[in-house]
């Protein structure tokens, strides 16, 4: 069973992404949207935690939210897929259920 976890909070000053990563099981997907997209960048203090999480979950980040915030897609951690809203819809359809970490 693969499920999708959606995180929308910045990982800097909010523990939501950490909780999500600890809870997500092998083979699940994590999608970073809204203020959570900053955690996809390669040069932050979260990068090691996010890379570690990639051993069990596939991680995507919403490109339009990166662009809105002036974040350079080319500096996203290698292995994280940058997707659009169409990709967002596809992941929701492909996974078995969805949990939004509000």
């Amino acid at each position: 069973m693969a499920m999708l976890h959606i995180v929308n909070k910045s990982a800097f000053g909010n523990a939501t992404l950490n909780s999500c990563i600890k809870t997500a099981t092998q083979g699940s997907s994590i999608l970073l949207i809204e203020d959570a997209v900053y955690a996809a960048m390669g040069n932050t203090s979260m990068a090691d935690i996010v890379k570690e999480a990639m051993n069990k979950a596939s991680i995507s980040v919403l490109g339009p939210d990166l662009a809105a915030r002036g974040m350079d897609q080319s500096k996203v951690i290698e292995g994280i897929s940058v997707i659009g809203y169409d990709g967002f819809v596809d992941i929701v359809a492909e996974t078995d259920n969805v949990q939004s970490w509000l």
């Binding site: 499920m3 600890k22 809870t23 997500a24 099981t25 699940s28 078995d96 259920n97 969805v98 970490w101």
Partner: peptide, 18 residues
């Protein structure tokens, strides 16, 4: 544990979060 919660979450049809 968080791992047990994760497994339980996987089994759900609908997850509503508040």
């Amino acid at each position: 544990s968080k791992e047990e919660l994760g497994n339980l979450m996987n089994e759900q049809d609908v997850v509503l979060s508040f």
